[in-house]
């Protein structure tokens, strides 16, 4: 078995991805163990989002292999369904369903994709809404909520599918500053519960607090991987130092 092989929650090996002439991912390899919290940072266009979008097949990688819980991602329906069942995702733009109430947003997946009875789906939804601390908003429509509340609903919607791995694609970047902390609190709580998480974020306070591993990407490559203590105290590369300087001391 190769290093970080099939016992890793996520194993990315030599993955490349192009958008036309633009090389979004260049020979990227990364392992995420079960229960590990990884924070991915880097300048915009560095391939962070593309990397995690490849992990749940929102983008198709062109070469290399991606395994989730030992199962290789390929074009088969079976692998796609299996991976989608294991991996939850939270988007920068929330992507809630605007025509459905909060509760309906949460129960749609459990009802239709998992075939749960309505009672059970509702209980599940209320449990996760309580966990993200907005059970009282269940009957409202997304547009009646603040950005922070919407993102928490989106997190709850993902959790309702009971994933083993959660991916966060810049979850606080579209939020007003005063709403960022309420979302980070929910994410921190989730991290404490032992969820395997990969977060693309610029929230370095959150990263210091919860990350087991920091990953720095630039130009489609992973430039540096280190535990947060070493990563912030003594970044190895010039590019990483530059980046940290910009986002920590502006």
């Amino acid at each position: 078995m190769d290093a970080g092989g099939s016992d890793a929650a996520i194993s990315v090996r030599n993955v490349c991805k192009n958008f036309g002439d633009f090389r979004a991912l260049n020979d990227v390899s990364l392992d995420v163990q079960a229960g590990e919290r990884v924070v991915v940072c880097g300048p915009s266009g560095s391939g962070k989002s593309t990397l995690i979008r490849c992990v749940n097949r929102l983008e198709k990688h062109e070469s290399g292999t991606i395994r989730v819980d030992g199962l290789e991602l390929d074009n088969s329906r079976r692998s796609l369904d299996a991976i989608r069942a294991k991996v939850g995702m939270v988007f920068q733009q929330f992507n809630l369903f605007p025509h459905l109430t909060v509760l309906e947003n949460l129960t749609l997946g459990p009802l239709r994709a998992r075939g749960k009875p309505p009672e059970e789906a509702r209980d599940l939804a209320m449990r996760y809404l309580t966990r993200v601390r907005i059970p009282e908003q269940a009957e409202k429509y997304p547009r009646q909520l603040s950005g922070g509340q919407q993102q928490r609903v989106a997190i709850a919607r993902s959790l309702c599918m009971e994933p083993q791995i959660m991916l966060f694609d810049e979850p606080t970047s579209a939020l007003d500053p005063e709403m960022i902390s309420e979302v980070l609190e929910v994410m921190t709580e989730l991290a404490r519960s032992g969820m395997t998480m990969v977060c693309v974020t610029h929230e370095m306070g959150f990263a210091k607090g919860v990350a087991d591993t920091m990953v720095f990407m630039d130009h489609g490559e992973i430039v540096e991987t280190a535990p947060p203590e070493t990563f912030f105290a003594a970044p190895e590369t010039e590019r990483c130092r530059d980046f940290l300087q910009k986002i920590l001391h502006h």
Binding site: G88, N95, L108, G109, R114, M161
Partner: peptide, 20 residues
Amino acid sequence: GQYEASHTISLSYADTMRFV
């Protein structure tokens, strides 16, 4: 994003169309 969100909660193509 509506398709992507549907994808991540495992909705089939038919359900994505019908409900989302």
